[in-house]
């Protein structure tokens, strides 16, 4: 089992605020790992550090053995890390199919695909994500559930080796969330994509993830199999403390 992603003692400080502090963990090829923690724990910031949206203040991020921290997001994407945004950012004035085509055209590929390949692969991803019926709708006209799904589709279209999902089920109805969960499992089954998933829905996380990393106030406070982590005193304390 080789490590796909290694996060080594990564930290990020905004002015005086320590958003992420000395966080380390690794992801093996093909794993699905959950990242949990109360709001403000630093999960999205960690995603930003890995995907290149921001440079860490300290520490390393290795992907397939290469240090990638501080590199441009587009380069990191082409190396094989795809992500979604907690606050969704589709291309609102483009159709659903065009959104996905952007991923196909610019994602991790050795050469520029031909027009036919782009069309075929776009169709395949749309079908995989159940978006075929909406392909010619403008992304801005979709419901929240639709836009979240589209974000996953766009990320998948860039053929990531690692897919990072930031609360793709938050704000969805239970039925929509269940649909999203099935879809992610399906993707994992057929593509074997490694995933790092941020989600508050504990039940979904237990079903989906082989391992969970818990953050609190920017620090990693726990890691392990889901059923072990949720019984951890520190984790319970952190969650209860944050809610109180």
């Amino acid at each position: 089992m080789t490590a796909l992603l290694e996060v080594e003692a990564v930290g990020k400080v905004f002015g005086g605020l320590v958003a992420v502090s000395d966080v380390s963990f690794t992801l093996a090829q093909g794993e699905i790992v959950g990242l949990m923690g109360a709001n403000g724990a630093g999960k999205t910031t960690l995603f930003n550090l890995i995907s290149g949206a921001m440079a860490p203040t300290s520490g390393r991020v290795r992907f397939e053995g290469c240090a990638i921290e501080g590199r441009r997001p587009d380069e990191i994407c082409r190396r094989g890390i795809g992500r979604t945004f907690q606050i969704v950012k589709p291309f609102p004035g483009m159709t659903v199919a065009e959104n996905v085509a952007v991923g196909v055209l610019y994602g991790a590929r050795r050469r520029t695909p031909s027009a036919r390949e782009v069309a075929a692969e776009t169709d395949a991803v749309l079908a995989e994500m159940g978006l075929s019926a909406m392909r010619d709708k403008l992304a801005g006209e979709l419901t929240l559930a639709g836009r979240k799904r589209l974000e996953v589709a766009r990320a998948l279209a860039s053929r990531p080796k690692l897919l990072m999902l930031d609360e793709v089920m938050a704000g969805l109805t239970p039925i929509e969330a269940a649909g999203a969960l099935d879809m992610l499992r399906q993707v994992h089954e057929t593509r074997g994509t490694t995933m790092l998933v941020v989600e508050h829905n504990l039940r979904a996380m237990m079903q989906l993830c082989q391992r969970i990393v818990v953050m609190h106030h920017g620090e990693k406070i726990g890691e392990g199999p889901p059923e072990v982590v949720i019984r951890d005193e520190k984790v319970i304390q952190a969650y209860l403390g944050a809610q109180a």
Partner: peptide
């Protein structure tokens, strides 16, 4: 397609592999 993606959302465009 890349140019229009930049117009629609530059951050997302960059994260989708576009050399913005």
């Amino acid at each position: 397609v890349g140019l229009r993606a930049i117009r629609e959302n530059e951050v997302a465009a960059e994260m989708t592999g576009i050399r913005v």
